[in-house]
Write a protein that binds this DNA or RNA. Structure first.
Lengths: 259, 259
DNA sequence: CGCGGAATTGACGCACTTCAACACGTGTGG
DNA sequence: CCACACGTGTTGAAGTGCGTCAATTCCGCG
């Protein structure tokens, strides 16, 4: 079912759909391909686009003067990003691709349009921002008050749930293009300690990672030990409609660089 | 100047004022006094009110099954809270007072009113949520990638800046009703280590805490060592107008308990 | 085949925690 | 009025989770 028309009947939790954004932007969204390792948004700069991620993984991050990096969040297929970059003070953190990715870039004023034209979409945008805050709150709790073992468990469960709402899990497994370095930078750990902790989780038959494939051995045990409670992820992701997340037909094409 | 009338001329960054909320709620806001140590919002429960904090300090927090506590943020005079508690999935974290406080409670549908009636207010709410996410991002970076020395420096600078935009600093000093335990729970440290680190900061003449009064010894040095960059706090706090933050006349009255 | 990024493992060090005591101020009840 | 409890701050000694440094192996890819 398409969204955008019969939405006022929906009681609560209106999702934001790709079509909504397309419409609000006057169909000005432009689809682009980005190679892995490209920076889309740079901390401190103002940007005039917001993005929908169709395919690929990205991450938001900050660099400290010491060279350390903190990853704030991962951007999975079906999610929006770039709202904060249009603030007058400039982007608070950078965004980069970790795999080849397919995005749609919308002019930033599409956001203004949405606020001006539809209270339903305004609420959906607000929910988007609230969800981002909720995820960051969980990450903070991770870094502040959980052991490496608990942190990794929690992150894997979160990815599992977020990916399943995008239809990207198979049984108890999912594809995860994260290196141990990226996991460490997201959780405030070193690569080496991530490696040791993953071994422990594997030996305990809780989480197994083979190549880029993660398998959840015991969801309930992991939830219990890491205080995972999935309600903070509920129902506010970008609504998947026909255009939002679809497999890209022409995988051989050269990725585009952003202007 | 009052807000609410001539807002479209304002280029960007519209603030949210207490008066806006009052108006959107049909003047249904109720002023209440709360004693220190009271829980206003309970994680997991749904609530039907949002709050403006006039006077006093509150904090958002989560409890883990192990008993550990993570404080996500402090709520200072002049700030709003409670948006997340009206989500259908229930509050993601609890909110409690750490001092006696004076709040105004608005019915939650005042939010809906604002979205339905004014795109200016919708944008302001969105900015509120973005600011919350920005603060959480900084906290995450704190906990994940900074030493105790850097974390405490960063937090004190953040409080200094946030309180100055509420007019609550005197020179290089401000009143801070935080115990060392609360600081530790906000930064992911133990009380004992907070104590030792504060001593180090005092010996280095960077930060001095006497009783509840914090003095910033060297703002620039602290900013440099902790990567503090205040733009993430800019311009989206609750706008102070005549009603928002005012000294309470009758301090002797017994604080009210919430129903 | 050879290169470079990623994973793995070991030895060692340190930042922070844990456990334990004690000091200090404040409020409260006998 | 003192005794006592209690919350908060302070300090010491010892333990540990995680970081740092260093080397080796594995693997995808041009």
């Amino acid at each position: 079912m398409r969204s955008g028309a019969h939405t006022l009947q929906r009681p609560a939790a209106p999702h934001l759909s790709f079509g909504d954004l397309m419409q609000a932007s006057g169909r000005k969204g432009k689809r682009v391909r980005i190679a892995k390792g490209q920076e889309i948004i740079t901390a401190g700069n103002r940007h005039d686009k917001i993005y929908a991620n169709h395919d690929g993984w990205l991450f938001r991050y900050k660099l400290l003067h010491s060279g350390r990096r903190q990853i704030l969040d991962f951007i999975l297929p079906g999610e929006l990003f770039g709202f904060q970059a249009v603030l007058p003070s400039g982007a608070l953190y950078s965004v980069a691709t970790m795999t080849d990715a397919v995005l749609t870039a919308f002019p930033a004023d599409a956001i203004d349009q949405m606020f001006d034209r539809s209270s339903r979409l305004s609420k959906a945008l607000f929910r988007c921002a609230m969800r981002e805050a909720a995820i960051l709150g969980e990450r903070l709790t991770n870094a502040g008050r959980r052991s490496a073992y608990e942190r990794i468990s929690h992150l894997m469960l979160e990815l599992f749930v977020r990916l399943s709402s995008a239809g990207l899990v198979q049984g108890k497994s999912f594809h995860m293009p994260l290196t141990q370095e990226l996991i460490g930078d997201a959780l405030g750990l070193t690569t080496i300690h991530v490696n040791r902790t993953l071994r422990a989780l594997r030996e305990d038959a809780l989480i197994t990672i083979e190549g880029k494939c993660v398998t959840i051995g015991d969801f309930d045990a992991l939830s219990a030990l890491s205080d995972f409670e999935h309600s903070y992820l509920d129902g506010t992701e970008l609504r998947r409609d026909r255009d939002a997340v679809r497999p890209v037909e022409n995988r051989s094409g050269r990725p585009t660089r952003l202007a």
